[in-house]
Design a protein around this nucleic acid. Structure first.
Lengths: 151, 151
DNA sequence: TAAAGATAATTGTATATACAACTAAAGCTT
DNA sequence: AAGCTTTAGTTGTATATACAATTATCTTTA
C-alpha cells in the first residue's frame, strides 16, 4: 500500500525528540528562577549577562555572546534594556574602536547582591525538580560549552 | 570591614548557576534543530506542537500547553502563526464551548514527513554535542515532566 | 436556580531570541 | 599603501515566550 502524505511520522519524533524535552525543561527551570527574582525586577537571562560581564576583565558584547552562545544582536538588545534599568554601562576600550566594554554599575552589583537569597532558593528548587543526576549532567555539559567560548 | 554594595556575589552565581548552563545548552541545541529544518520553513517549537497535536485524541490548546509546559497565551500565538502557514486548523468540540480542538492539516502532516531526515540528522548532532549521559538524563527527566501534563 | 468560583482562550505589553542586511573598523595581501 | 576579507556592533524583521487583564463558559455551592 502506497504511503500517503498522511502517513504518520509524529510517533517517531514525539517518542524521541531530545530538543522537545530539553526545551520543556528549559521553560520550567527558567520559570523557577524568574519567579524567584521577579520581586527585584530582574530576569535570569539578565543575571547571567551581568555575572559574565562582572567576571571578565574585558567584557565586550562579542565575548559575552561567545560564552553564553548568544547571537550578537541578542546581546545588543539585552544590553539596551539593562542600560535602561541602570545595571550596565558602556565604556570605550582603547585598542579596538569597533567595540566597547560593558561595565556593571554599582546599582547592578547591588541588585545582584539583593537577589542572592532568591537565587539560592531557585537553585534548590531546580535540583529538586531535575534530580541530582540530571542536574549534574547539565552542569558539566553546560560548563564545557560555555568554556569553549573563552578560547 | 563593612560590606559595600560592590561586594561581589557574581562569583557564586557564575560558578554554580544551573539555569545559566541549561539555557546555554538550550540555545545551542535549539539552533541545531532549527538550522536542520530551516529549509522547510518550520522551527523546532512548531514541530513539537504539531507532534503533540497529532498524537492527542482531543488536542485543545490547554492540553498541549500542559504537556509542553507552555503558557496558554504562548500556545495561542504559536497556533495563530501555524494556522497562517496552513499546518493547523481549529475544529470545535461538542462538549465545551470555551475550547476547541486543534487538527493538523494534511499540509502539516506532509511537512512533518518532509523534515524527518533533517530532524534525524539534528538528533544525531545533538547526541554528539551533549554526549550519551547528558542526552539520557535530559530525555528521562523531560519525559517525566511532559508526562505530568497528561494527568 | 442564582451567585460565586474556576477554567479556556484571547489580547495588551514586554522581554528573549536569531537571521539578514548594513556600517565601521581592523587585519591581511599583494 | 590600496584593496579584499574578516570582525564588531546595530537595526529591521520575525518568532517564542510569559504575565496581567479581559471575556466567555463551565462548575459548584449556597
Amino acid at each position: 500500500m502506497k504511503k500517503t502524505p498522511d502517513s504518520d511520522c509524529s510517533g517517531e519524533i514525539g517518542a524521541a525528540c531530545i530538543g522537545a524535552r530539553l526545551r520543556v525543561i528549559n521553560r520550567v527551570v527558567t520559570g523557577v528562577y524568574d519567579d524567584a527574582i521577579r520581586p527585584f525586577g530582574m530576569k535570569i537571562s539578565q543575571v547571567n549577562i551581568l555575572v559574565v560581564a562582572s567576571q571578565l576583565e574585558a567584557a565586550t558584547p562579542s565575548k559575552i555572546g561567545s560564552i553564553l552562545k548568544m547571537d550578537r544582536s541578542t546581546i545588543s538588545r539585552n544590553v539596551e534594556r539593562m542600560k535602561r534599568k541602570g545595571w550596565l554601562k558602556k565604556a570605550f576600550s582603547t585598542d579596538d574602536n569597533r567595540s566597547h566594554l560593558l561595565k556593571v554599575t554599582p546599582k547592578g552589583k547591588k541588585t545582584l547582591t539583593d537577589i542572592l537569597p532568591a537565587w539560592r532558593d531557585a537553585q534548590k528548587e531546580t535540583i529538586k525538580i531535575l534530580g541530582k543526576k540530571t542536574t549534574g549532567a547539565i552542569f558539566e555539559q553546560g560548563n564545557k560549552i560555555m568554556m569553549s567560548g573563552f578560547q
